[in-house]
């Protein structure tokens, strides 16, 4: 079993909702990137989504755009991200890591080489925002290397296509809670509850819900009908500007702990 699958299996057995924090790799401080990953786990993360900085993040709002720009300005690239995951793996063999980003950095790294390097580093899955199912033939080497392509589904996804996505989903299916960019605040739980229920009925993979989750209350609202919640922009915003490892860990903890607690209240 892949690390993502076994993590969700255990969550389900324990009757818990997964907590998936997203951070942009190398932000707020590249030298503490690995320490931040460990801090996320210590604060209750079940899976880490690590954003690979890209110059043209078309699906991201200002918070993640700026985090990306800051990381790029400090020279962070895909190679660094893979190195950090490998270092993280030396002390954490269990927490799944999913790289989230855009296709061009992987294209330039080379698909076969990326598959090899990522698998070796201990990456478990990749979520490529601008690579829908129809274009994912190029990712074949990743699947061959045991990496899972995390697919997205959206409110605009048509029913027939949703069935296709549910069938193809491996690891987990990421349901985007509203039509928009990351960091927007348009969450309407009533609207998405019914849709997510439909998706969960069809998908064999667990369903994580992201976009618009900002705090314990919104996470808790989602937890009622999802297998996991993803929190990105609000966390990235909270971490921005911190420079020391202690401070970064403290901010991650202060932000995630109440959310973890809210999710764990039955």
């Amino acid at each position: 079993m892949n690390r993502i699958e076994s993590r969700f299996f255990r969550l389900q057995q324990a009757g818990r909702t997964g907590l998936i924090p997203f951070v942009t790799a190398g932000d707020p401080a590249p030298e503490h990137a690995v320490a931040l990953m460990h801090a996320l786990v210590a604060a209750g993360a079940d899976l880490i989504e690590l954003g690979v900085p890209f110059s043209d993040p078309m699906a991201d709002g200002p918070v993640i755009q700026h985090a990306s720009e800051r990381a790029i300005a400090r020279g962070v690239g895909l190679g660094d991200v893979l190195r950090w995951v490998a270092q993280f793996r030396q002390h954490d063999a269990d927490t799944p890591v999913v790289l989230m980003g855009y296709l061009n950095p992987i294209e330039l790294h080379g698909y076969a080489r990326f598959a090899q390097d990522a698998a070796k580093a201990g990456v478990d899955g990749v979520l490529i925002v601008d690579c829908p199912l129809e274009e994912s033939a190029v990712l074949e080497p990743l699947r061959a290397a045991g990496l899972q392509q995390i697919l997205l589904a959206a409110p605009t996804t048509a029913p027939a296509r949703m069935v296709k996505l549910c069938e193809a989903a491996r690891g987990f299916l990421y349901y985007v809670s509203f039509a928009g960019i990351t960091g927007a605040a348009r969450l309407s739980t009533a609207d998405i509850a019914a849709r997510v229920a439909e998706v969960r009925a069809v998908a064999k993979a667990p369903v994580a819900v992201g976009f618009g989750v900002r705090d314990a209350a919104s996470a808790k609202a989602i937890a009622g009908f999802a297998d996991a919640v993803v929190i990105g922009s609000a966390l990235v915003e909270r971490l921005a500007g911190a420079t020391e490892a202690d401070e970064i860990a403290a901010r991650a903890h202060a932000f995630l702990a109440p959310i973890r607690a809210a999710l764990d209240v039955p």
């Binding site: 296709l103 601008d130 959206a154």
Partner: peptide, 8 residues
């Protein structure tokens, strides 16, 4: 090569 939301 676009986000899922734009596929529809």
């Amino acid at each position: 090569y676009v986000a899922e939301t734009l596929m529809a």
